[in-house]
């Protein structure tokens, strides 16, 4: 096994950069610097324009490229095959993957191919006496679990980049060498056939700067209008907790949390939401959280910057009025 840690990405990402790559490089750089490991970044498929610049900022030694027409678009079987062949050639000690929707499928499949241990939802990483220690989120964020990977085999770690911050390391810059890595994808074919692609148009909660979210404290479906109206008055987007979606008060694309969207707005207003960790993982990265709840002890206030203790059915109409008055 070589003494390297490699960050793997395979998509250009909506913003032109693979989702979560800088957050993952932040963790990878810290680990590599403290444990004396070489840091590499593997881009499977088309590379983002800024790849070299980003790699340099995080002290990446090699920007590894796998170029193959089969990797032009994400195809799980092809992607897993490419990463598995790369892992066998390079034998990195640690493979880090920013945890996107597709990565949740790719990471454990890669681990099975290479016989590696696998841990998802990672928040921190350490190397201690040869063992990799990973702190991961569990119980939807209620607890943290520390996992140890001690075996001789490499390990694959999914990094919960959505919950981390990207920090350019000081004095760690490098001039990465680009390496073309060749793999044979001749035999790789997709077994799962896409009949209808997912298609999303319009603004995304994940990218919204202002979000107003409603919970069960709204009492009934009709009152969800208040959430939509306040969102509109603030130029933001409406969101909801899971039970609100399950009750059909709001569309499932509006759900925030562990099994919904992970958001990073400047402002998140939570009205009639208790503050369960499964919801809060979807908004705790917000710069400012405002909570409106009639229970002064509600957990949501522990996350909030500003709180109003009161009936959201009374407060929301007033907020709409105040937001509209300029």
């Amino acid at each position: 096994m070589s003494n390297s840690v490699v960050v793997c990405t395979w998509e250009r990402g909506r913003a032109g950069v693979p989702a979560g790559v800088e957050e993952t490089l932040t963790l990878a750089h810290k680990l590599a610097a403290s444990a004396g490991l070489e840091l590499n970044w593997l881009v499977a498929g088309p590379a983002p324009d800024q790849a070299l610049e980003i790699a340099g900022r995080y002290g990446v030694a090699h920007l590894d490229r796998i170029e193959d027409s089969k990797l032009a678009e994400f195809q799980p079987d092809v992607c897993v095959e490419a990463l598995a062949q790369y892992s066998k050639q390079q034998a990195p000690k640690l493979v880090l993957i920013p945890q996107t929707f597709d990565a949740r499928l790719v990471a454990p499949r890669l681990a099975a191919r290479t016989g590696a241990g696998v841990v998802m939802n990672a928040l921190t990483l350490e190397l201690e006496g040869g063992a990799v220690k990973v702190t991961a989120s569990a119980y939807g964020g209620d607890t943290r679990v520390v996992y140890e990977l001690t075996g001789a085999e490499s390990c694959v770690v999914g990094v919960l980049a959505d919950m981390l911050l990207a920090e350019t390391p000081e004095g760690g810059a490098s001039v990465p060498a680009v390496r073309q890595v060749s793999v044979d994808l001749g035999g790789a074919a997709e077994r799962v056939r896409v009949i209808q692609k997912a298609h999303f148009e319009g603004p995304r909660l994940e990218e919204a700067q202002i979000i107003v979210a409603g919970g069960m404290g709204l009492g009934q479906k009709e009152n969800y209008r208040l959430i939509e109206d306040l969102a509109e008055a603030l130029g933001g987007m409406a969101a909801a907790s899971r039970p609100v979606v399950e009750n059909g008060w709001a569309d499932s694309s509006r759900q925030v949390g562990l099994t919904g969207k992970i958001t990073h707005p400047a402002l998140y207003i939570a009205a009639g939401i208790s503050g369960a960790s499964q919801h809060m993982v979807g908004c705790s990265a917000a710069k400012t959280i405002v909570a409106i709840n009639r229970d002064a002890d509600a957990a949501v206030f522990r996350y909030a910057r500003y709180g109003i203790v009161g009936d959201c059915l009374e407060v929301l109409p007033e907020l709409i009025r105040a937001a509209k008055a300029r």
Binding site: R144, E148, L149, A296, Y306, G307, I308
Partner: peptide
Amino acid sequence: RVTMTRQFVEPIIGRCEFIQGSSP
């Protein structure tokens, strides 16, 4: 390959400022 060695509850440091008002 993986052993769970520890579990803990991360404390959340609240710093909420409650907005008071004579009315909603």
